[in-house]
Design a protein around this nucleic acid. Structure first.
Length: 886
DNA sequence: GAATTCACG
DNA sequence: ACGTACGTGAATTCT
């Protein structure tokens, strides 16, 4: 038997706010009302085991009631800001918990609830309404119970028609008349002055309704008669206002209110975010949403899945034309050597599970042909990873048409949890078990029995099929379909090609470099121990701090959470005090090169290809940039010569070829010139001036000849600051100057570049209004903290609002250039290969006969990638290795 | 697993 | 008054 619990969201959160002691999370955001609401919600779920839940909220300030009576709720105190800030938190948490909620513009929660209960009466469904508002009693019926919340939110007293009769000797409908007569100060409903609950009850028991009281007012006596007759209109209006509207145009159906248990994958993180540790414990969840035993037994969607083997292969092959969606389960963080756990193909009616052992067989060749056929469009989750994992097993994959992982990222690039199961939860689909629950995690990971496995993978496949159209709609609504289909989807295939290709590393040279570093490290360490008078773990900031600040009594300038800070900035300041400090700095530099780059890189060289094959992650960076892993080839040293030498080990994979690198010059400031439309900045780039020198001239008001090294350095820092979302404090730290001086620089800058100032103001304002910012190619980033009351949190969001369109558009541009470059290489049938992307740089390996062509083609394609109000400049260089291509 | 440090754009 | 520059990944130590 279905059972719906409807919660009067506004009423309960209000009660919880005043009933709960203050409670805040680490960032200072008050959370007491959300906490109180949630404890009550969980208790209701526990005690009543609802199959459906709905939390209804008021929406909009004006409701139809104001048309009748402008003073409706007029005297009510404004919602305290400590409470209003908790509404979004509650709504987000409910979403995370998997508890349906809705609000309908122009109606109050009461009206939604009234309509739901009317429908429930018609359809004979059981409903429990949870509210602290006595008005709700008018909705009670054979099918509808009103759970009146008392004493804050701890006590609940159920009212059906019988209980109302017992308590007031009234029917549920007469509750409206009761309020019509007595009014309600909290809603500013007048009623009849001087008539309270007692009198109103007496009148109703005698006459039955407001109308009857008025009609037969002659039967009343004295003062009472006067009052009733004088305020007859008020009584009629009050009754009308007190009547819950029960005809709201609800689009939601019974199914939309289905509650299939808490969604642990998203409930865990949502509760953790609010720091509700006791609730996490109570639900036996961790902050990643590990399942409790009870939660793991949640009902799951039914799927039809058959196991593919030689006996039914012919039948399956005959159905391949109908397959639109597939899921390939992989295991392992690095997709270049991930295991393929199993494959599921899905048509509308049927799912087919293919074991890894079967796909490898001779008989399965037609299935492999299908997987590798670029003409067959495929939808799935993280197809980029699937491509690489299959490739490592010598199985080709092609035809990626819609990747829900990638789409999920575009729709919210800051969401860290982009698992399929969290996407399913986002679209309120039936519960999808987490991989962790099915496979276990860490050392305990294991493949379950084939029945469990095939059904789990089939459910994932079904989830993908359901998610695709929903994401398509959302992308379309956001104007992001071109970004998705014409940029990110094609790019994911290009990235996979680059990764499979890899870049050759000269392992012998790298080892030689390692031996040099090793010698230097040993020597430096010995000297340091000598001076310190003791041996200690140089890699331990804690032990180092002890030596520097306790033993040697150097002045501690900065502290971390756990003790003394010993980072490079601190050590630079300490260098004049003691010779040991320089040595430590040198040790740090070399030790970093040795552990991260020599040893780290050696570990990543493939014994199959002799190359390193990075993995570009397309769904990590909130701005739209790529990130690189296993190994990270986007942070190979360049700034210091000692480290830069490492670039010599990155070489062409074929004899006689060259490494060619091209990078955008000042792409972010050029993007800024374009989007801010600042004449002076645009002019600087049209003239192709040295931008930092130009900025120095403008900020310090001097001629080009007068710009000295120091001025240019300061101007460069100002330009960086502008791109990052400037603050005087940040600039003062960077330049090591007083804050006031930094503020003067910034003022000067904005005085000259007024278009930039206008952009910075406008983008923050726009972010406040829309809740997000976007790039030139419509990439979005939501900034919910832009309206935070906490200065730090808000300021961070403001800087992000300024920076993201700049960094993000630069990312759009180089991605576009990569798609165009890939096409240009193919169109011209070139042997040259694109190998790496480092945010504003592309690296290729080029055969000698194509070198001249590529030297022109690459910068040409890069600079023409997108038409801006200023030219895009790309500078190219080449050599026998990456070091020489500078 | 958190914290610290440091490599890159 | 508030007190951080924007975006990443990897190695190491220590709880």
């Amino acid at each position: 038997m279905d059972k719906l619990i409807v919660i009067d969201g506004n009423n309960i959160i209000y009660r919880a706010f005043f009933a709960m002691p203050p409670l805040s999370n680490a960032s200072g955001q008050q959370t007491n009302a959300v906490y109180g609401f949630t404890t009550m919600l969980l208790r209701l779920i526990d005690e009543h085991k609802p199959t459906h839940i709905m939390v209804a909220f008021d929406a909009g300030k004006e409701t139809f009631r104001h048309a009748d009576y402008q003073e409706y709720k007029g005297k009510r105190e404004k919602t305290p800001p400590e409470l209003s800030g908790q509404f979004p938190l509650l709504k987000e948490l409910l979403q995370g918990l998997g508890v349906p909620q809705f609000e309908i513009a122009g109606y109050e929660a009461d009206d939604i609830i009234g309509t739901l209960t009317r429908l429930a009466d018609q359809e004979k469904r059981q409903v429990m309404v949870v509210s602290g508002d006595k008005d709700m009693l008018q909705l009670a019926s054979e099918h509808v119970t009103i759970a009146m919340v008392r004493k804050g939110v701890t006590d609940i007293e159920p009212f059906g028609p019988a209980e109302i009769q017992e308590r007031y000797n009234l029917t549920p409908e007469q509750i409206i008349d009761l309020k019509g007569l007595m009014g309600d100060t909290s809603d500013n409903i007048p009623g009849i002055p001087g008539v309270g609950e007692k009198t109103a009850l007496k009148l109703l028991h005698e006459f039955g309704s407001v109308e009857q009281v008025l009609e037969r007012s002659d039967e009343l006596k004295g003062k009472m008669k006067e009052r009733v007759q004088e305020h007859a209109d008020s009584a009629v209006l009050s009754k009308k206002l007190a009547t819950i509207f029960r005809e709201v145009p609800l689009e939601q159906t019974w199914e939309d209110m289905k509650f299939d248990g808490l969604h642990p994958e998203t409930a865990g993180p949502a509760l953790a975010k609010l720091e509700f540790k006791s609730l996490l414990e109570r639900l036996k969840l961790d902050d990643g949403g590990t399942l409790s035993a009870e939660a793991a037994s949640q009902p799951e969607a039914e799927v039809q899945v058959s196991i593919v083997d030689e006996s039914n292969l012919t039948e399956v092959l005959s159905k391949l034309d109908e397959i639109k969606v597939l899921h390939v389960e992989t295991h392992g963080d690095n997709p270049h050597h991930a295991d393929v756990v199993g494959i599921v193909l899905a048509s509308a009616e049927q799912q087919y599970f293919i074991a890894y052992d079967f796909i490898k067989t001779e008989a399965a060749q037609p299935l492999r042909d299908w997987l590798g056929d670029s003409a067959v469009p495929k939808r799935g989750y993280d197809l980029h990873r699937i491509d690489l994992a299959l490739h490592s097993k010598n199985i080709a994959f092609a035809g990626a048409q819609f990747d829900v992982h990638l789409a999920g990222y575009l729709l919210d690039p800051t969401e860290a949890n982009q698992t399929l199961s969290s996407l399913a939860a986002k679209y309120s689909m039936s519960y999808l078990a987490s991989d962790e629950g099915v496979f276990g995690k860490g050392a305990k990971w294991k493949v379950p029995d084939q029945d469990t496995l095939s059904r789990h993978l089939a459910r994932k496949c079904a989830a993908v099929a359901q998610i695709v159209p929903l994401q398509e709609k959302e992308l379309s609504d956001n104007g992001m379909l071109p970004l998705f289909h014409e940029l990110e989807m094609p790019l994911s295939r290009i990235l996979a090609d680059m990764e499979k290709q890899g870049i050759a590393v000269n392992a012998d040279e790298l080892k030689e470099l390692g031996r040099e570093f090793e010698g230097q490290i040993a020597k430096l360490a010995a000297e340091i121990y000598e001076i310190a008078g003791t041996e200690f773990n140089l890699n331990s900031p804690k032990q180092l701090g002890e030596i520097l600040f306790v033993k040697l009594e150097l002045p501690a300038v900065k502290k971390t959470k756990t003790g003394f800070s010993t980072d490079a900035e601190v050590l630079e300041k300490l260098a004049p005090y003691h010779d040991i400090v320089r040595l430590i700095l040198q040790y740090r530099t070399i030790a970093k090169l040795q552990s991260t780059y020599v040893e780290g890189l050696l570990k990543e060289i493939s014994d199959v290809t002799g190359k390193v094959h990075t993995f570009y992650r397309q769904t990590i960076a909130a701005t739209g940039r790529l990130s690189s892993q296993y190994p990270n080839l986007q942070n190979i040293p360049i700034r210091l010569e000692e480290g830069r030498k490492l670039r010599k080990v990155f070489v062409p994979s074929e004899p006689g070829w060259s490494i060619l690198a091209a990078d955008y010059s000042q792409i972010e400031l050029r993007v800024l010139a374009h989007i801010s439309d600042d004449d002076r900045l645009k002019e600087a780039f049209v003239q192709d001036m040295d931008i930092h020198t130009k900025t120095a001239m403008d900020v310090f008001g001097v001629s080009p000849e007068e710009v000295d090294g120091n001025m240019r350095r300061s101007a460069k820092a100002v330009n960086f600051g502008i791109v990052y979302g400037i603050s005087d404090y940040g600039l003062s730290q960077n330049l090591n100057i007083p804050r006031k001086e930094a503020a003067k620089f910034i003022d000067q800058y904005f005085e000259v570049y007024q278009g930039v100032r206008r952009y910075m103001d406008e983008i923050v304002k726009q972010a406040r209004g829309d809740g997000y910012v976007k790039t030139l190619l419509e990439r979005r980033r939501y900034l919910p903290e832009i309206n935070a009351r906490n200065f730090n949190i808000r300021s961070f969001a403001e800087r992000t609002a300024m920076n993201t369109p700049i960094q993000g558009t630069a990312a759009d541009i180089i991605k576009l250039a990569m798609v165009k470059m890939d096409a240009a290489l193919a169109d011209n049938k070139l042997k040259s290969r694109m190998l790496l992307q480092v945010h504003d740089e592309l690296v290729f390996e080029v055969p000698p006969e194509e070198l001249e062509l590529m030297k022109k083609l690459v910068p040409e394609v890069m600079s023409q990638a997108l038409k801006l109000a200023v030219p895009l400049k790309s500078e190219v260089s080449y050599g026998e290795n990456w070091y020489e291509a500078k």
